[in-house]
Amino acid sequence: MSLYDLIWGGVGLLLTVMVLSYLIGDNLLFRLAAYLFVGVTAGFLSVLIINQILWPFLLQPLINGLWIEKIWVLIPLTLAVLLVISQFQRFKGLGRVPLAFLAGLTAAVTVGGAVFGTLIPQLRAVVNAFDPLDWYQSPGMPWLRITEAVVMLVGVLGTLSYFHFGRRRRDQNDPSEVRPGFFEGLAKVGGVFLGMALGTVFAGIFSTALVAMIDRLLVISEFVMRLMGGS
């Protein structure tokens, strides 16, 4: 192991131990590591934004570009300037224009992605599971496929019912958490499916965290072993 690797190995080990000390409780070591990390991340992100976004998209065309390129850059440049100066109390209102642009852009991408990227494909997948050709032509047990399709439909309808916002219409002043009759029944089934989904995700989250823990233990042991081996 070279000195360079040894130093970085030592830094990694030290930071690992400092952060893991949070298991005992919040302490000086953990805070040191956490704030160091925050500082490094903020610095790195700044460099990245300057190097990979502001420079190529804004500054480079402005400095080195042709006049036509400079014209194209004028609009984002104006928006950027407005965004920056709006951080000063005196020019507070000017930030609305770039923020409005950003909000509109995000909202549109949201709508398009939600409908064409999730809603429609997922609805189609539920419906396609009822294709008789698929049940009988593809290998496997047809009854199992039929059952799967029905369970899928019931699960989706149940989950959607679970999220029904409206409540049963009784006395207007009577606070209630109960959905209208039909939805309430389906929602009970939906609750089970919802729980199963969350349980599965929980298992995944724990797996990921566990792999990180195993990795940290391995890193510590490998460093100590190398150090003891004198290499």
């Binding site: 992605g113 064409f116 990227g117 995944g204 989250i205 990921t208």
Partner: peptide, 27 residues
């Protein structure tokens, strides 16, 4: 899923494969 949604909703036909963590896979 941000990538999947946008790429598929804009009808990109290139096949998409995922290499993800255990926490992301079920979703």
């Amino acid at each position: 899923s941000a990538w999947i949604e946008q790429l598929t909703s804009l009808a990109l036909e290139t096949p998409i494969y995922l290499l993800v963590t255990a926490q992301a896979a079920p979703l």
